[in-house]
């Protein structure tokens, strides 16, 4: 499978998902934890779902309150997230002057 290059914001979202990979997450919660605005966050979520890296479902919390959309990484998403984040961290470490010389 061809692995596309991910943007910094996407890596940030994946990182938050990896904190508790089994949990379903709300959009507003992700927005607060990543600092991303809704205009940036939702297109990322939409894309992740389109590539079946993310699954979404509606949950009803209580009567009279609109249902909420929740998200969780699929197994593919989990694998890709781990790989990409590891790659990203390695790349970051290599860019540090002291380590790259050593």
């Amino acid at each position: 499978m061809k692995t596309p290059r991910l943007s910094r914001e996407t890596l940030l979202v994946l990182d938050r998902f990896l904190e508790r990979p089994a949990d379903w997450r709300y959009g507003y919660e992700l927005s607060r934890s990543t600092g991303l605005k809704s205009g940036t966050l939702y297109p990322i979520l939409m894309r992740l779902q389109k590539y079946t890296l993310l699954e979404a479902c509606w949950v009803t919390t209580e009567d009279g309150v609109p249902p909420r959309h929740t998200y969780r990484l699929t197994p593919n998403g989990l694998e890709l997230a781990r790989a990409k984040l590891a790659e990203s961290r390695a790349s970051w470490l290599l860019q540090q002057p002291t380590l790259s010389r050593g």
């Binding site: 507003y28 927005s31 809704s38 979520l45 959309h69």
Partner: peptide, 27 residues
């Protein structure tokens, strides 16, 4: 539209009215 509904659903949980407006504008 489903994603729009998702952002609309989250709007009720956004703290602060100005923040809510910003959330809506982004969506």
């Amino acid at each position: 539209r489903e994603w729009g509904e998702a952002m609309r659903g989250e709007l009720d949980y956004v703290e602060g009215h100005w923040a809510g407006l910003m959330w809506a504008m982004g969506g």
